[in-house]
């Protein structure tokens, strides 16, 4: 393997790599402090083995002393589990619902979908195509109808038919639109009224291409709907979505899944170690190569 000295240049390069992965200033500075301390403490001279330390420190920041939370909160004894999807426009909510339905169905669960986006052109059709693909029923009303009413219907239908999981789609909305955030709160309320403790999961879809605004998204959606987890979508591109570190650290919302494409099985459980490694390892390797050449 190639080694180099751990000096100021090295720290600066690492800092830049992480900033370019959208990790954000505060988190990067936090890491650099921890890393400098560790390098001194362990008297580390070259980059041999430093990747593991960087990973460890990043995971430490991410988890900030909390337990690792990646699983879904599923109801037992045949009780209905309700999962609500929220997020800004175009991040991948509907697609992720299709993928998650497929995943749960493969695990032997019966799944139903609720077409709660009655606003965007073609949104209901889109979810219905996914329903057909996966082979699950979709509860829908016509475009323009009240999303809360669709949810009410869907929860009733899911209970009647005794399905295991109901996954609810909602229209994309920007977090600064007060009316639309209120509407989302109402949708949430309707579900809770039908089943106490439901929705059992509120998953915020975040596009990995998003920059620092994702932190504000998470904060506002959490206030409106008590988000329980994040799905980080579009990680198959070149963007890394590093802001999820700050989101977990500051707002205590864990990433539960990552989206890796547009197909049915392009959804994977989140693995913190693997993820943080991906934030910087390739970049560092490339820098080393350049220095060598």
């Amino acid at each position: 393997a190639r080694y180099r000295k751990v000096d100021e240049d090295f720290f600066e390069e690492l800092e830049e790599l992480l900033l370019q992965a959208d990790v954000g200033f505060e988190t990067v500075m936090d890491l650099m402090d921890k890393l400098r301390y560790e390098v001194q403490r362990q008297n580390i001279k070259d980059t041999n083995g430093i990747q593991a330390i960087i990973s460890e420190k990043l995971v430490e920041i991410y988890e900030s002393g909390e337990e690792n939370l990646t699983g879904l909160n599923m109801q037992q004894n045949g009780d209905l589990t309700v999962i609500l999807f929220v997020g800004v426009n175009g991040v991948g909510k509907t697609t992720t619902i299709g993928k998650l339905a497929h995943r749960l169905k493969s695990e032997g669960k019966s799944v139903m979908l609720a077409a709660g986006d009655t606003f965007r052109a073609g949104a209901i059709d889109q979810l219905q195509v996914w329903g057909e693909r996966v082979g699950v029923e979709v509860i829908a009303q016509s475009e323009g109808s009240d999303p809360a009413a669709v949810m009410y219907d869907a929860v009733r239908a899911a209970k009647n038919r005794g399905v295991d999981v109901l996954i609810c789609d909602t229209a994309g909305r920007l977090q600064n639109k007060v009316n639309l955030m209120n509407e989302l709160e109402k949708v949430h309320r309707v579900i809770s009224r039908e089943i106490p403790n439901a929705p059992h999961e509120v998953l915020l879809a975040l596009d990995a291409t998003t920059g620092q605004n994702a932190l504000v998204q998470a904060q506002m959606f959490k206030e409106a709907t008590n988000v329980t987890g994040i799905v980080l979508t579009k990680l198959d591109g070149t963007a890394k979505g590093g802001i999820v570190l700050a989101i977990r650290n500051k707002l205590h919302i864990p990433v539960k899944f990552v989206g890796l494409g547009e197909k049915m099985d392009d959804l994977q459980p989140f693995d913190a170690e693997r993820y943080v490694y991906g934030l910087f390892a390739d970049g560092l390797e490339k820098e080393l190569k350049e220095i060598e050449d």
Partner: peptide, 12 residues
């Protein structure tokens, strides 16, 4: 382009 895009905007 989505105006919320982060650092990757240049690559794209």
């Amino acid at each position: 382009v989505d105006s919320m895009t982060g650092q990757d905007a240049v690559n794209v």
